[in-house]
Design a binder for these strands. Structure first.
Lengths: 255, 255
DNA sequence: TTCGTCAGTGACGGTTCGTCACATATTATA
DNA sequence: TATAATATGTGACGAACCGTCACTGACGAA
């Protein structure tokens, strides 16, 4: 006796995505704090009960959005990882792909940050939590790959008392700190006047990579020019979209 | 005709602090997301109307708590700034005072982060917003002071294309990233297994400071031993309180 | 005593959340 | 085709929370 399945997996997935997209749209217009399940329900051709079949609560929906966002970011990371060029350049490129992501999808970026808070995780379903962890692992794979490339070609050697994972994390947390505090989606950091996120991210990356002795050091190579052409080649559409939003990566500030 | 003041300034301030403390207690036990104005009201010997005389809404209360927290952190920073020793050591010490703060007052730390979100700021009173900005400036003063000391004694010189403010920010955002992602109050960063926040903060600080050529470089000096004694001397009580919470700074992980 | 002002109160309307009893659709079986 | 069984969908409802406002009481001035 097989249980009759009236709705196939694909249709369910599609509906889930429809709900997520509607929610993202609402967040973009009203701000994440004003997201309401009631509002989502009216935007969507289903009733409240059906929505709650997919997400056990508001927080669970938020986490699902976050997972979707991480997938988007993961693609950008992977493209940076696969790009041509030396390992250090690609790591810088990856950091900037992170910035592009934050600039292009501020609502998604914010969702990811919010979804990390214990209250969201605590109220979410196991399914979405596990899904999220898997996606993050995939995210880390690109970073890990670049570091390994650097170790293999000899341009990088592990600093004292640090393993690969710690190197990966140092780069990640550095980029996270700079972008989070300066992305403008967060009213962080008084005295952020005169701080330009792309310039600071560039400088911090250089300081950190120089600090670990990753060749070529910034004094020996014009990383900026290289970065500029790499970005133009790898993320042409994304840069266009950023420009369409009235923002633009300002390379003159640190060239 | 002077308007009759039946309640003096001090009493108001005292009441405000009472409300804040009650709210912090509630956050510690129930989590920040379950903080309710109704719960605050029952904890406090005033009625709802009176509470709303002090704070125009829930978010305004949250911002007030955040301000209070920044004051606490500012004191720790200032103590690090005033400590004896070379500039670079004191900067490392300051970074660890940040970590101590995050470990000792996780609820406060979380409040500060939450209060940076646009929705909180947007719903808060001008009074508390301005107060917060002033407090943050004070916070930055300690960092700024240490960097200036480094520049004055010649142990540090500005990297290409970077000014003092950028140096300050690079240190701040680095510490922020590492502590935020690893402090455990945020369910961040899959693959954080085997990452130890005090060790990573130490390593990141060294990489960054080495990267800017801040003397003495980590290869020339045992910063760890120095840090350990400095912490013991400057923050004995705080370390005790951390130990009382069942946590302890693990220096063996990177000595 | 009377009036005006101000601190303080808590009941109330408006939202939002998440549930659940019920309705409808689809498939299996007689 | 009729009927039963199961899957799917609905929206009214109670609970919780927010912030307000009409009211009370206390105090000082006239």
């Amino acid at each position: 006796m097989t249980p009759p399945k009236l709705l196939d997996e694909a249709a369910l997935k599609e509906r889930e995505l429809l709900i997520i997209n509607s929610a993202v749209l609402l967040i973009q217009t009203n701000g994440i704090e004003n997201l309401t399940m009631d509002k989502v329900v009216v935007q969507v051709p289903f009733s409240k009960g059906t929505v709650y079949k997919h997400f056990i609560g508001k927080e669970d929906l938020l986490l699902a959005i976050s997972n979707y966002s991480i997938k988007v970011l993961g693609d950008l990371f992977y493209r940076a990882y696969q790009f041509k060029g030396c390992a250090r350049s690609r790591m810088l490129l990856l950091n900037f792909s992170y910035l592009i992501y934050a600039m292009l999808y501020p609502a998604l970026f914010q969702c990811v940050m919010c979804s990390k808070s214990p209250n969201v995780v605590g109220k979410s379903s196991e399914k979405h939590i596990n899904e999220g962890e898997l996606l993050e692992v995939k995210l880390m794979t690109s970073i890990h790959g670049i570091v390994e490339d650097g170790l293999n070609d000899g341009s990088l050697s592990l600093p004292l008392n640090m393993d690969i994972q710690q190197i990966c994390f140092s780069n990640w947390s550095m980029a996270y700190g700079a972008i989070t505090l300066l992305s403008g989606e967060v009213e962080q950091c008084s005295g952020r006047t005169s701080l330009i996120v792309e310039r600071e991210l560039f400088n911090h990356s250089n300081l950190l990579h120089d600090g670990m002795g990753w060749q070529p050091l910034s004094k020996d190579r014009n990383h900026c020019a290289e970065l500029k052409t790499a970005l133009a080649e790898l993320f042409p559409e994304e840069l266009m979209q950023i420009k369409a939003k009235g923002r633009e990566l300002n390379f003159e500030s640190f060239s």
